[in-house]
């Protein structure tokens, strides 16, 4: 397994807010899709046969699809659907991996060894395969996809958090807390958790982009979440048949997926640069 060293987080949190451009951009996009119902020009599911397959024009900025539905509205609503899935999955995965990581790292000993062994086992099977296996068993649907996404990513994060916590365990602060007889859970919550936070945030951000790509792949395979208002992956998969007749159907969701994944990676990198002082000088 690859070892990832994330330096000593917590040392300089104010600097997190520097070089904010990608972060601002990212937050803006998130706000846009989450506020979709308020901004979208029309009902994303309104069928209008006379308006089918219209190229982008002033009445439909991103054109219309095979049922005359407004692509811009569908992108906004679809973004919301995708975003909720991805955010819930990332939140779940982060919570799970942080708790397991801290438990293993802080307790050490047998607990650590057992948990590490389990994590290594899970790491042996690639994320998308875990996701496929889960979907094959649970069936598809938003909940199943969320579970699949969590299953695909949590082990890797837990491993990173665990190795971080293991290095913290021997730090002066925590040894002092132990010496003063603070209970283990208190040390975990008060001292260890805040110290891991910057790393966890970086991991979660990087995971956002990855999760969106996984959801898109699943949708492409016909195994994704499929609420009536399509998410981006589904829109992209559907647009394929219309590539010749209506290329704008593919451009819009494609650009959204790629753009969002790029942004999430950039934000992750910026945050990581802030979290790891050794990176800054280069």
């Amino acid at each position: 397994m690859v070892k990832v060293v994330l330096g000593h987080p917590g040392s300089s949190r104010p600097r997190l807010f520097r070089r904010a451009a990608p972060i601002l951009c990212f937050v803006l996009c998130l706000t846009l899709v989450l506020a979709a119902p308020q901004i979208a020009p029309t009902d994303p599911n309104e069928v209008s046969m006379p308006r089918r397959l219209m190229a982008p024009n002033p009445s439909a900025f991103l054109g219309t699809d095979q049922l005359g539905r407004d692509v811009l509205s569908r992108i906004l609503h679809g973004g919301q659907a995708a975003m909720i899935t991805v955010l819930v999955a990332v939140a779940g995965s982060t919570a799970l991996s942080t708790s397991v990581g801290i438990l293993a790292g802080a307790r050490g000993g047998l607990v650590d060894r057992v948990l590490c062994a389990v994590l290594d086992l899970l790491l042996a099977v690639p994320g998308l395969l875990v996701a496929l296996a889960i979907l094959g068993t649970l069936g598809t649907g938003r909940l199943a996809v969320i579970v699949a996404l969590i299953g695909a990513s949590w082990a890797e994060e837990a491993r990173i958090v665990r190795s971080l916590v293991a290095t913290l365990r021997s730090s002066a602060l925590i040894e002092a807390a132990h010496a003063l007889g603070a209970p283990a859970w208190r040390i975990g919550v008060v001292h260890v958790l805040p110290a891991t936070l910057p790393t966890v945030v970086v991991l979660a951000t990087l995971n956002l982009g990855q999760a969106l790509l996984t959801v898109s792949s699943l949708s492409f395979l016909g195994l994704g979440t499929q609420p009536p208002s399509a998410d981006w992956g589904t829109m992209l998969a559907e647009s394929r048949a219309y590539l010749g007749a209506a290329p704008w159907l593919m451009v819009a969701p494609g650009a959204c997926i790629v753009g969002f994944a790029v942004l999430a990676n950039l934000v992750g990198d910026v945050l990581q640069g802030q979290a790891d002082p050794r990176q800054r000088g280069r």
């Binding site: 998969a237 394929r240 990676n265």
Partner: peptide
């Protein structure tokens, strides 16, 4: 590299 990593592989394939 950043962009390539953000491209869903099926899009590349198409």
């Amino acid at each position: 590299v950043v962009v390539a990593a953000a491209f869903p592989s099926f899009l590349v394939a198409i």
